[in-house]
C-alpha cells in the first residue's frame, strides 16, 4: 500500500448547498448530494447504497440500524437511505444485480474501503462479475475505522448502554466513543476500547481507512462540524466533482485554512493501519502454524 491517505488530486472541505439534503445529513451531505446530482444529470442510472433493512421491520418501519443494499434510482430513495447504522451492508453483491437485473449501464456505488476494494477487484479481475467492469460509473468511498455486526450493536446498546434498541434515536461512533442518543434525549457514551472485542473481526485485518481506491472519498474526520473532508482521487472523480461545482452543488473551504484538517485524517489512517498490520503479524503466531495473510501471495 502506498501512502496512508492514498493517491489524490485534491483534498478540501465541502458541504452541500442543497438545503434538503444538508438538513438530514450527518456531515456535509456530500454522498447524497453527489449521487442525486449524478442521477439527475445521467452520469449514473442508479446507485448501490446501504439502506435501512426492509426484510426485518422495526418499530413498524424499516430498521435503520440494520443495513441492506438497494439500487436507488430516485432522489427519494437516496434520501431514505441516509441514516444507516454502523453495521456492514453487503453492497458489492448488488453491482452485478444492478447491471444484469436492473439493466443499468452506468452504476454508482457507495461503500466503506473494503467494499471499494471489492468493487475494484470486480473491475480488474471480474471473475464472476459479468458485464460489471465497464459499467461502474462513479465510486464513492466513506472513511471507516471498523464496523459492528448487527448483533454486536444490539449487545452494546442494550447490555452496555442499558437501553432498548427500540428507544434509540441516533448512534454515533467517533472521538473515542460509541454514543447512543435515545428518543427521549438521553445520551450514553461507551468508550470504544470497551467495544473493541465486539467489532467485526474481518475489520482487524483491514489496511485502508480513507477509501483510497474510490473516485471520491469523504467523511467527517478532520473537518469542522457540519462539513466533510473530500478527496478527489481519479479522473472520473475529478470530472464529476468539477461538474458538480459548476452546478453550484457545494461550498468549499481550502483544507489548510481550518483546524484540525488533513493531519487528523492522516492520524486516524495511520492508527488504523498500524494496529491492523500488527493483527496480521500476530496471526502468524496463532497456533504453531499461523493463519493466512490475504495480501501476500507466494
Amino acid at each position: 500500500m502506498a501512502a496512508p491517505l492514498g493517491q489524490y488530486k485534491m483534498v478540501l472541505f465541502a458541504r452541500t448547498t442543497d438545503k434538503e439534503i444538508l438538513r438530514g445529513a450527518q456531515n456535509g451531505g456530500i454522498v447524497t448530494a453527489l449521487l442525486s446530482y449524478a442521477l439527475d444529470t445521467g452520469i449514473i442510472d442508479g446507485a448501490v447504497v446501504a439502506a435501512p433493512s426492509r426484510s426485518k421491520p422495526w418499530r413498524g418501519k424499516f430498521d435503520p440500524w440494520r443495513s441492506e443494499p438497494i439500487v436507488a434510482m430516485t432522489r427519494d430513495q437516496l434520501l431514505s437511505a441516509r441514516k444507516t447504522g454502523y453495521n456492514i451492508s453487503p453492497n458489492v453483491m448488488m453491482i452485478k444485480e444492478a447491471t444484469r437485473s436492473y439493466g443499468l449501464d452506468r452504476v454508482g456505488i457507495v461503500g466503506v474501503p473494503c467494499q471499494i476494494q471489492g468493487v475494484r477487484k470486480a473491475q480488474l479481475y471480474p471473475i464472476g462479475m459479468r458485464g460489471v467492469p465497464d459499467k461502474i460509473a462513479l465510486v464513492i468511498g466513506i472513511y471507516c475505522m471498523e464496523v459492528f455486526p448487527y448483533q454486536s450493536i444490539v449487545q452494546i446498546v442494550e447490555d452496555h448502554g442499558g437501553v432498548k434498541m427500540e428507544s434509540v434515536e441516533k448512534i454515533e461512533i467517533g472521538k473515542g466513543n460509541f454514543t447512543v442518543v435515545t428518543e427521549r434525549g438521553r445520551t450514553i457514551q461507551i468508550p470504544l476500547n470497551e467495544t473493541r472485542d465486539l467489532e467485526q473481526p474481518g475489520c482487524h485485518v483491514c489496511l485502508d481507512y480513507a477509501a483510497t481506491l474510490a473516485d471520491i472519498s469523504t467523511g467527517s474526520a478532520g473537518s469542522p462540524a457540519g462539513w466533510s473532508t473530500v478527496f478527489i482521487r481519479t479522473k472520473i472523480g475529478d470530472e464529476v466533482w468539477k461538474r458538480a461545482m459548476q452546478a453550484g452543488l457545494f461550498e468549499t473551504k481550502p483544507i489548510g485554512q481550518v483546524e484540525p484538517g488533513l493531519g487528523a485524517v492522516e492520524k486516524l489512517a495511520v492508527e488504523k493501519i498500524t494496529r491492523n498490520k500488527k493483527t496480521l503479524e500476530d496471526r502468524d503466531f496463532i497456533g504453531t502454524k499461523g493463519l493466512r495473510n490475504p495480501y501476500i501471495t507466494t
Partner: peptide
C-alpha cells in the same frame, strides 16, 4: 477470520447459492 461481509462472493455466484447470514 478474514471475511468483512462485502458481498462480492454472493454477487459473483452464478447460481445464487450464497446469501448473507449475520452479515
Amino acid at each position: 477470520g478474514l471475511c468483512m461481509g462485502c458481498g462480492s462472493c454472493a454477487g459473483a455466484c452464478p447460481v445464487r447459492a450464497i446469501s448473507m447470514e449475520f452479515g
